[in-house]
């Protein structure tokens, strides 16, 4: 019985999150039947797409025991620069071409972070704080600070491509085609973390860097790969953001880093490293989106959204901390008993 409860709860409280989402959705449907519609579902999904891709990168860094605050800036750097390059080149690079450029830019910027962290063993928060300023400054001072309304034709076309449309009376619920690549990315990162040596290394590094080193993990190379990968994911998220918002604005995204870290932490990833899962992260992102959406439908002024997410986060991390403490106390008691025996 107990085992089943534990199994359902999941290693990172995924079950609790899923249950919370379920309760919120049920309550909302009872209060306001308009909530439970396909268009609400599609809306929530669409609003979570970019955030989910960023969150996957953040998840990897957090599991490895680090923290990265430069990823939104890398994202908009990659997204905006890609559009600038496309316009300068005169010819339409096509969707894959644009994606490739964004991924390359993102990975290179990520490598800068990784290089500084791996080569000099610097604290990750401080390094990414510094590079964030440099990246944002370079973007706005030398690449462009103007809002670009006209996207290349192929990307503009992608902006309005839906996977399918459900007609509900007068309103059409649209599911954007980006859902497919985002789901694939989630699966890929899950596979990377759970089924590869790289993934083992990320968890090992986060649990204890010194032990990972002694176990033979190439710590410096791992760190380099981790931050490059975060840059790569941020590049994808950046070009996706530009596509979905149908314009390129270099001032956007910067400043959202802590919100996304909050979603990942709510999803059960331990900021101390060594713990976290893709499923939990996705649930964390969705839970925040659902709550924001519910508040609007309940007629709560939009101004209360931030406070509500704040309460949710404080409650979430407090429960996690109390749980960890209880577990530690239980372990101590067992050890004490064993010592006596």
């Amino acid at each position: 019985m107990n085992r089943w409860v534990n199994r359902l709860r999941g290693r990172n409280n995924e079950g609790v999150l899923a249950l919370t989402i379920l309760v919120v959705v049920t309550a909302m449907t009872l209060v306001n039947p308009d909530f439970f519609t396909v268009s609400t579902l599609f809306g929530i999904l669409r609003n979570s797409l970019v955030e989910t891709v960023f969150a996957l990168g953040v998840l990897i860094v957090i599991i490895s025991g680090g923290i990265d605050v430069s990823f939104p800036v890398i994202g908009i750097f990659a997204g905006y620069t890609t559009i600038v390059i496309a316009q300068g080149g005169g010819s339409d690079p096509g969707v894959l071409g644009a994606l490739l450029v964004a991924v390359v830019i993102g990975s290179l910027l990520g490598l800068v972070n990784g290089g500084l962290i791996a080569r000099f063993g610097l604290p990750t928060l401080i390094v990414t704080l510094g590079t964030q300023g440099v990246f944002r400054g370079v973007l706005l001072a030398y690449i462009g600070s103007k809002y670009i309304a006209e996207l290349p034709a192929s990307i503009a076309q992608l902006s309005t491509t839906d996977l399918f449309v459900v007609q509900q009376g007068p309103v059409a619920a649209r599911l954007h085609v980006f859902v497919v690549p985002v789901v694939l990315l989630c699966l890929a990162v899950h596979w990377l973390l759970q089924r590869t040596m790289f993934g083992r290394g990320v968890y090992a590094l986060g649990s204890d860097a010194e032990s990972a080193r002694r176990a033979g993990f190439p710590v410096a190379r791992l760190q380099l790969a981790i931050y490059a990968l975060v840059g790569l994911l941020a590049g994808i998220a950046g070009i996706a953001h530009v596509t979905l918002s149908r314009n390129a604005n270099p001032y956007e995204l910067a400043g959202t880093e802590l919100d996304i870290i909050a979603a990942v932490v709510l999803g059960g990833a331990s900021i101390l490293g060594g713990r976290g899962s893709v499923l939990g992260t996705v649930l964390g992102v969705v839970l925040i989106a659902v709550i924001k959406n519910s508040l609007i439908l309940m007629g709560v002024p939009g101004t209360w959204q931030r406070a509500a997410v704040g309460v949710l986060l404080v409650a979430g991390v407090s429960i996690q901390a109390l749980g960890a403490r209880r577990k530690a106390a239980r372990r101590r008691a067992v050890e004490l008993e064993e010592a006596r025996a």
Binding site: L272, A307, G310, V317
Partner: peptide
């Protein structure tokens, strides 16, 4: 709670209260 997390939460909470 780890300080960075506790204050990440209260940052949102206090700012949220101010906006509301």
């Amino acid at each position: 709670v780890t300080p960075i997390l506790a204050t990440l939460g209260t940052m949102q909470l206090y700012n949220g209260l101010a906006i509301a």
